[in-house]
Design a binder for these strands. Structure first.
Lengths: 238, 238
DNA sequence: CGGAGCTTTGACCACAGTCAAGTACCGTGG
DNA sequence: CCACGGTACTTGACTGTGGTCAAAGCTCCG
C-alpha cells in the first residue's frame, strides 16, 4: 500500500468486518479513479502548517492520505480544545452552513486529497456507493466522538491518558508492534488539550504509568507499551 | 405538523439553510412514503422504557418522532455517561459490527419509526437522496458531539450546565419562547451524567445561575431563562 | 555549539467530587 | 380527599484530584 493511496479508515456499523485489512473500507479501483478525477493531491511540507481555519469558507473536503493532523477550537479565553486527531484514511473539513467549524493543522508533514465542496453533493448523489462509504465514515467518527465523551466525562486524568495511548497504538505507522514502541507525533500540550487537562498532568501521568509498569519512556516521544495491561487499566469494556 | 410526522433534525454542512423550518431537513412526499413503506411506527408508553441495550444485535435503525430519549454507557465501575439526548427528528441506533454500542431509554412517552437494519444498506443505496439526508444527519450529530467535547474539556461545571440549558431551549416542544420557560424532561442525575458531573453540582449550579439572575426556578423542572445572557455567559462563540 | 521550544518537577490552592442528612414533590392507595 | 411512601431534589461539610504558577532540565535542529 503506497503511502498516498486513497483509503477511508472506518469500521462499519452493521456488517461485521470482513477482510484482514481491518481498519479500512475497501474502495474499488473504479471508486478510487472517480475520486482521483474530482480530487487533487496536496502536500503540507512542515509540521504546524495550517490546512484551514475555523470560519473560513468551506471550499474543500479533505481526505488525509499520509501524516497526522489535529482539529481544534479556541475559546474566547484562549483555552484550546482539540476535538480530533486525524490519521491516514481520515476525513477532514467538518463544516456548518458553508464554513469550517474547527481549525486544522498538520502535526507532521502531510499529504491529502481535497475535493471541491461545490460539486460534492452532486458527485455523492451520482455515486451512491461512494456516498455510502462517506456515510459510514461519518458514523464511525460519531462513534469515536461519543467514546471520547465517555472518557472525558467519567475517567480520571490518568485513565484518559492511558486510553489515549491505547488509541494511538492502533495506527500502524506510529506503533511498531514487534518492539511494542509507540512514536507520538504530538506534543504534551496537544495531548493535554485533547484529553481536557494540562501538559503538566500529562507528564505526571506518564510518570505514574511508568511507575506502575504499564509503559516505559525510551524518550519523550517514544513509549514502550504493555498494551493488554493498558487496556485493562482503562477498563472501558462496559 | 403532526407530532409523529417523519422528519430529520439536522443543519447541513455546505448549503446555508434555506427555509424557515430551520432545524429540519426537508423530506419530499415521496421520500416520506418510501420510509413509511419499509418502516414501522412504535410507541413507548412510559418514561424509562428501554428501547434497546448495548450489546444487543442491532436489528433496527430508529427515527424519533415524538418524546425524548437518552443514550448512555455504563462503565464497569457503575458510573454512567449519557452520550446524547434524543429529541424529535433525531436518529437512534448507533451500532458497530452489528451490535448497539449504547443503551437507549425513553425519558418521556415516545413514538419512533424503526427500519430493519437488514435491508437498510440496500435501501439507502437505492435511494441516494434519502441516504444523503442520513449522511447529513450523521455529520450534524458528529458536529454536536465535538461541541460537547469542547464543553466537557474546557468549560467548568457551571458553564457546562448553562450550555446544556441553552441547548435544551432549542427544542420548541419543551421551550415556550413567549413565556421563556423551559420544561426539562430529565432528572438532575441525567443532566449530571450528561455534562460529566454529579447531581449535587447540577443543583448547586442551578442555584448559582439563579443567584446571578440568568434563570429562575419556577419548579425543579421548569426554568424561566434569560437566553441571550445565558449564551453570553457560556461564551462559546470562539 | 547555541538556542528555542518542549518536557519535567515542585509547591500551592481551589473547584468540584463524595458522603450524609434533610426537604420537597408526586403518584398511589386507602 | 387525605395519608403515605418512594423518588427526586436540595443543602451542608469534608477531602482530594488536578489546575496554576514558577523554574529548571532536556532535546533536537539549525
Amino acid at each position: 500500500m503506497p503511502p498516498d493511496e486513497i483509503r477511508i479508515r472506518a469500521v462499519p456499523p452493521w456488517q461485521p468486518v470482513q477482510g484482514e485489512e481491518a481498519p479500512f473500507l475497501p474502495l474499488s479501483v473504479d471508486e478510487k479513479a472517480e475520486l482521483r478525477r474530482i480530487g487533487q493531491a496536496i502536500s503540507f511540507k512542515t509540521a504546524g502548517s495550517q490546512v484551514f481555519a475555523r470560519g473560513e469558507k468551506a471550499s474543500y473536503l479533505y481526505l488525509l492520505t499520509a501524516g497526522v493532523a489535529e482539529a481544534y477550537f479556541v475559546l474566547p479565553n484562549g483555552a484550546r480544545q482539540i476535538v480530533a486527531f486525524y490519521w491516514p484514511g481520515d476525513v477532514l473539513g467538518l463544516a456548518q452552513e458553508g464554513v469550517y467549524v474547527n481549525s486544522v493543522e498538520a502535526l507532521s508533514p502531510c499529504t491529502v486529497y481535497r475535493f471541491p465542496a461545490d460539486g460534492m453533493t452532486e458527485f455523492l448523489l451520482a455515486h451512491p456507493l461512494i456516498e455510502h462509504k462517506f456515510f459510514i465514515k461519518a458514523v464511525h467518527d460519531l462513534r469515536n466522538a461519543q467514546r471520547q465523551l465517555i472518557m472525558m466525562g467519567r475517567l480520571d486524568g490518568l485513565r484518559r491518558l492511558a486510553a489515549f495511548i491505547v488509541d494511538c497504538s492502533a495506527h500502524e505507522d506510529y506503533f511498531d508492534s514487534k518492539r511494542r514502541v509507540l512514536t507520538l507525533p504530538m506534543t504534551r500540550y496537544d495531548i493535554a488539550d485533547y484529553i481536557g487537562t494540562s501538559s503538566e498532568v500529562v507528564t505526571r501521568g506518564l510518570g505514574r504509568l511508568e511507575a506502575i509498569g504499564l509503559i516505559r519512556r525510551l524518550s519523550p516521544r517514544n513509549l514502550e507499551l504493555k498494551s493488554a495491561e493498558l487496556r485493562a487499566f482503562v477498563n472501558l469494556a462496559g
